[in-house]
Simulated scan of single mutants.
Amino acid sequence: MSFENPTREEIKDILQNAGNIAVVGLSDKSDRTSYMVANALQQRGYRIIPVNPAVAGQQILGETCYASLKDIPDPVDIVNVFRRSEYCADVAREAADINAKVLWLQQGIISDEAAAIAEQAGMKAIMDRCIKVEDSITRPERS
Rank of each mutant, 00 (worst) to 15 (best):
Q58R: 15
M1E: 10
R139M: 14
E134S: 11
P75I: 01
L61N: 09
M123E: 10
K70H: 06
E9W: 06
G45M: 12
K124G: 02
Y35H: 15
L103T: 01
I110S: 02
S111H: 00
A18L: 04
K101T: 07
S30P: 12
Q16N: 15
N52S: 05
T64Q: 06
D77T: 07
D90Y: 03
A67E: 01
M36C: 06
Q42G: 09
I110V: 14
C130A: 10
D128V: 03
Q107T: 12
D28Q: 13
R32A: 08
P50T: 09
A125R: 03
R139Q: 14
P140Q: 04
P53M: 11
A67M: 07
V133N: 08
I109Y: 00
G19H: 15
C65P: 05
E134K: 11
S34T: 12
G45S: 11
I98R: 02
N39H: 15
S85Y: 05
N80Q: 13
D77P: 04
I98L: 05
Q16E: 15
S85G: 13
S2H: 09
D128F: 00
M127V: 00
A116R: 13
A114K: 00
I126W: 01
E10D: 14
R84T: 07
V133M: 08
I14T: 10
S111Y: 00
S34F: 08
I117E: 08
S27D: 06
T33P: 10
